[in-house]
Write a protein that binds this DNA or RNA. Structure first.
Length: 115
DNA sequence: GAGGTGACTGCGA
DNA sequence: CTCGCAGCCACCT
């Protein structure tokens, strides 16, 4: 079908599946939608997620090092960190503390969900 | 149709 | 450890 969901829609859906108090990375999202290596597109999609409906918790998406690289694209630079801390995710120096523990992998978690 | 952009990632020095 | 380069692919002009 040429009317298949856009690349962006795939990204949005995965991000929306990220549970509360959890985070994921661009690479894992890209891999899940079959665009492994195209992690840049994920971030690009996030930029278009503003005003999306339903809203996309872009603040739960960070780079592979847990760094809040996209915080500059929020309403305010401290918005991303604030949202994360609000969910119980501790952030320090623009990095997610114990981000590996809070890391949520769609390719892994979503698969289990299907079963 | 062609060129430029980007909220990333991996590898080498 | 830090710094730089190349690959990746959809969207915009």
């Amino acid at each position: 079908m040429k009317t298949d969901p856009s690349f962006f829609d795939k990204v949005y859906e995965v991000v929306r599946h990220v549970p509360y108090g959890r985070i994921t990375t661009y690479g894992h999202i890209a891999e899940y939608i079959g665009a492994k290596g195209a992690s840049r597109m994920v971030g690009w999609a996030m930029n278009a997620s503003h005003g999306g409906d339903p809203p996309v918790p872009a603040h739960r998406v960070v780079n592979r090092t847990g760094l809040l690289t996209g915080k500059h694209h929020f309403q305010t630079e401290d918005m991303m960190q604030r949202l994360l801390t609000n969910e119980g995710v501790d952030v320090k120096d623009d990095r997610v503390v114990d981000f590996e523990k809070l890391l949520w992998i769609p390719v892994k978690e979503m698969k289990s969900e299907l079963g």
